[in-house]
Simulated assay, not measured.
Amino acid sequence: MHDGAKRLGAERNIRRALTGHGHAGTSILGNMSCVQQGRPMDTTMQLLFALVMGVLSVELFSRAWLGFLGILADMVLFFRKKRQSQAVMSRLGMHLGIALLCSLSLILCFHLYLVRYGLGKTESEQLFYFLASVVRLTIFIKDIGRHIDALFSCDQDADDDP
């Protein structure tokens, strides 16, 4: 009977650890913030994640925006009779898929970064995010004219590389 009580106590402790009940902020399956787990994340890793998130957020946003512009370009070319309906539907599906996939991926990345893992709160993280996003945005703006021209091009393969 003594072993049964020990086993029951051990199972209860495991259940509490997994669900966070009874131990404030120490859930293994709950919010996986390193600070809440009692293990502060290394500052270098936080800054690395901020850099990656800065580049990734601009990349996903720019691809989503180009997908949306591609939808508009397909509509304009279709109504001006510069594209056949089959080609427009094919490109429209591709651009819609890109816009949706990148938009939803961006939302998911921000949810994971800010809410789930609780990152991006310190000034140094925000500065590194800002610097990385400015560098990536500069590259995007430099090439935006070429991408928009490709969207309005009547060539079928002109905008395959967003």
Rank of each mutant, 00 (worst) to 15 (best):
P40L: 03
K82N: 02
H95S: 06
A50G: 05
R63S: 00
K81P: 02
L56E: 01
Y117G: 01
V134I: 15
L114K: 13
I107R: 04
H95Q: 11
S90W: 12
F68M: 08
W65R: 03
V88D: 00
S90D: 14
S103D: 12
G54T: 08
G70W: 08
V35N: 08
G118L: 12
D42L: 01
M32Y: 00
S103P: 09
Y117N: 09
R146N: 13
L72H: 02
D74I: 05
D143A: 10
G97W: 08
L69F: 13
F49A: 06
V55E: 11
L56I: 04
D74R: 08
V35D: 04
S105D: 13
L112Q: 12
F128R: 08
L137R: 02
V58T: 05
D149I: 10
L47W: 06
L106S: 06
D42Q: 09
G30Y: 02
V52S: 09
N31F: 05
L108W: 15
E59K: 08
F140D: 05
R91I: 00
D42W: 08
Y117F: 15
F61P: 06
I98S: 06
Y117M: 13
D143H: 14
I71L: 12
D143Q: 10
W65Q: 04
S90H: 10
A50H: 03
R80F: 07
F49G: 02
V115W: 15
A99T: 10
L92I: 06
L48V: 11
Y129W: 09
F78M: 05
G120S: 06
G93K: 00
L92M: 14
Q37T: 07
G54R: 03
H111V: 13
Q126D: 01
G70Q: 09
L108H: 13
L96K: 05
Y113A: 03
R83F: 12
L66P: 02
C34V: 01
G145T: 10
L106W: 10
C102I: 02
F110I: 07
L96I: 13
L137W: 06
A99C: 14
L108D: 12
R83C: 04
V115F: 15
V135P: 03
D149W: 13
T138F: 15
R136E: 10
Q46D: 11
S133M: 11
L66F: 11
R146W: 09
T122V: 04
I107M: 12
L77N: 00
G38D: 10
R146K: 13
S85F: 14
F49Q: 03
A64L: 02
R83N: 05
L127G: 00
S103K: 06
C109T: 13
I141V: 15
S57Y: 08
L106G: 13
R136W: 08
R83Y: 10
Q36N: 14
L92Y: 08
R136Q: 14
H147S: 05
R136C: 12
D42T: 05
L104F: 15
L114Q: 13
I148D: 03
W65C: 04
K121R: 14
A73P: 04
A73R: 04
S33T: 05
S90P: 01
H147I: 01
A132T: 04
I28H: 07
F61G: 11
V35S: 07
Q36Y: 09
W65T: 06
L127F: 13
V115K: 15
W65N: 01
Q37C: 02
L60P: 00
K81S: 14
G118W: 11
M94Q: 08
G97N: 03
L96M: 12
E125R: 04
V134E: 12
F78Q: 00
